[in-house]
Nucleic acid binder design. Structure first.
Lengths: 401, 401
DNA sequence: CCATATAGTTCAGATTGAAAACTAATTGGA
DNA sequence: TCCAATTAGTTTTCAATCTGAACTATATGG
């Protein structure tokens, strides 16, 4: 008996149905369903839904929002929605900036703020201090709007251990085995602050607040090339939690050495630095270099065009291999790749067609529309999702308080 | 409300616990646990376990096997085991042979038979006819041993649609969109016959009856190069069910064209045909060529050695990329690669160390020990697993009958 | 032969959803 | 104006199923 799965108890049924009803309300979104509609949608009886909704309303997760009239006869229903008076703070540390946002349970970004910050090489404590200022701003905004902060999500460009609040490694920040104390950013928030990986959060943001496709590979072109795999509306993390390292897929066995110790990795051909260098973009801040590169592309300068073309070609190789291995049918481009999409896509599609003909419909290669808030939304969304998936635990906690 | 998850009913608790108890008995295997031990292992009360076991015994899935004595004091328990009087037939169609086997619920291969058969290009009906002869043999053996056949699993080297009993494509058999009628092989078996992919079945066989690791990539080197990804003791199939196509990962962007329409695929460097050709092995049957190649390798013939070395190198590239993308930490070599392992492994490990240093512990690169029966066991195991995972449905059916 | 220990069963109690009957609120037509 | 029709939501009764505690069954060892 190596694995001890938990036994089913009578009470589990209610846990599950609480989650089912809450999830139904979340999915229905703006339509603000009534109890009767939820009963029809979930397959539960009206009696069961009424009882479940009563608990959810009492906990503050769900609120009744006026009457619901369809223009037909009969008693109108009470509209239900995820409370707009409860929110989660999304936070992001990246190489060049810090960002925070307040997301209510319904997924609306109620407030948003970002500052430039050269975080590479900075001590984690120093960065957390700066982030704390932004967090204070959010808290003030939340108080003003009468929104209770339930918790927060913090995305960093590196490998994290969410259980132990540990950044295992964030090479682009020059961090290694750093213990953050994210909880301190939002003192008093009952659900604390959850660490997560930037690319994974962006992928989840795209899933919950973007395209809504259930299966896709999100490609994050920040300083490194990252990826997030969404399968069946869930993040695929792999057994060790480090899946999606698209940047270190080998795209040429005779390629140059990579910072990861390997060779021929995608990142050495399609990382930001690699593209800037191949394009001959002079040194400078990220914003400046991006401007210059875009200008060069617009001017059809050959070196820049070739650089982006090559990046697209090798990205195509990596995507072809990924699609074959993981059966991926859709790709969403984010970060740098979204910015360069116009010039990148043709080479990418040609490459895909060469290495995996017919596997990926060109229409399934899309560009993220969430821009910089995707990561934020995903980081906060993970906390919101955890409430939607186990509301019972939340109910218990809020009854004690 | 786009997805309608099923509501939890009170009866679901019992469904789950029936499965939990059955699974506990299966895992404990030869130890033949008592009800009391199951209660301790599952966290259920003795009362609940007794009630659940009663149902399982009545259905015939579980049998009591004499008393259980620990040498200590107290009333001895009744040992329980998955019935050895119920079995599932595993069947395999491959390019060069057909095989069948009888697996009892406890996972013991009770009977096994295989014949050579040049199936490439043969009509599916003709192949099924030959397979029917083997199936008849199994049925006779089962009758003689007083084992009731519950169902069967049939593995084929191609992409299948298990719901519709369809082989979507099996290029190495020259089959395309073939409708088989596997159920006819085992008339009267209550669970019918389930089609599955050969590489996936071999991976599952390895999981259930081989190493027992919960996370690994199985590499099947038959005529094509296939793969099966096991994550968290489950087969990863991807959204469309075609995941694990290791053979068509791009290992060299300037590589030769592949039968899949792409270019630079692993299969063009490490497929059986590619290795034979590179090694200069003359034409002939698979068995003959394998003998010749092994002899050449034993004699340290340079061309053969180089061919296998190259195959290992490119397999290393594919595994490095796979490990990065899917966070795979262990690899099991099967089929042709298991046969060549002695000569293949050094180059493979060197390659892995070059392209993904430190990612895969050399000790986690193992060779399948199940040989040809792995696929059979996996094909049958899927049916056995489906019973273990939802015994309630089986109970219902057996009560009606 | 009895104290002790362990296995397994029986029965009351609690939780929970289904089903059906009931109350509540609204519209439209007589 | 008022009542039939219609839809929303609540109350009540019932069945399924687990827990916990008390009970019975069967072994060992002095």
């Amino acid at each position: 008996m190596n694995e001890a799965a938990a036994p089913g108890r009578v009470g589990d049924v209610r846990r599950r149905n609480l989650s089912l009803v809450l999830d139904s309300i979340a999915r229905t979104g703006d339509a603000k369903p009534s109890r009767a509609q939820l009963a029809a949608g979930t397959g539960l009886t009206k009696a069961a839904v009424s009882s479940l909704v009563a608990d959810l309303v009492e906990s503050g997760l769900v609120s009744e929002v006026g009457l619901y009239r369809d223009g037909e006869r009969g008693r109108p229903g009470q509209g239900l929605e995820l409370s707009s008076r409860r929110g989660v703070v999304g936070m992001e540390i990246n190489v060049d900036y810090l960002a925070v946002g307040l997301v209510d349970l319904g997924g609306n970004l109620r407030f948003h703020s970002a500052v430039e910050s050269r975080n590479r090489g900075l001590a984690p404590a120093k960065v957390m201090e700066r982030l704390g200022l932004l967090a204070a701003e959010v808290k003030a905004e939340a108080a003003a709007a009468n929104i209770a902060i339930l918790g927060g999500g913090l995305a960093v460009p590196g490998l994290v251990d969410a259980q132990r609040n540990l950044v295992l490694s964030a090479p682009n920040l020059h961090w290694e085995q750093e213990e953050l104390n994210p909880r301190a950013l939002l003192e008093g928030a009952p659900l604390g602050v959850r660490l997560s990986n930037e690319a994974n959060s962006a992928a989840l943001g795209e899933l919950w607040y973007g395209t809504g496709q259930p299966d896709f590979l999100y490609v994050s072109g920040e300083v490194g090339v990252g990826g997030g795999v969404i399968i069946g509306s869930e993040l695929y993390t792999g057994p060790g939690g480090t899946a999606g390292e698209l940047g270190h897929i080998v795209v040429h066995p005779d390629g140059p050495g990579c910072s990861c110790g390997g060779a021929g990795c995608l990142e050495t051909f399609a990382g930001q630095e690699a593209i800037f260098e191949a394009a001959g973009t002079p040194q400078g801040s990220l914003g400046e270099r991006t401007e210059l590169l875009l200008a060069a592309l617009a001017a059809q300068e050959p070196q820049a065009t070739q650089a982006v073309h090559d990046a697209g070609r090798y990205l195509g190789v990596a995507l072809a291999s990924s699609a074959r291995l993981m059966d991926i049918e859709a790709v969403v481009l984010g970060g740098h790749f979204a910015v360069l999409a116009e010039w990148l896509k043709p080479a990418l599609l040609t490459s895909l067609e060469r290495y995996a003909p017919g596997l990926l419909d060109p229409g399934n290669l899309t560009v993220s529309t969430l821009e910089h808030s995707g990561t934020l939304l995903g980081a906060a969304g993970q906390v919101i999702r955890s409430v939607i998936e186990s509301p019972f635990e939340f109910l218990l906690a809020s009854k004690l308080a």
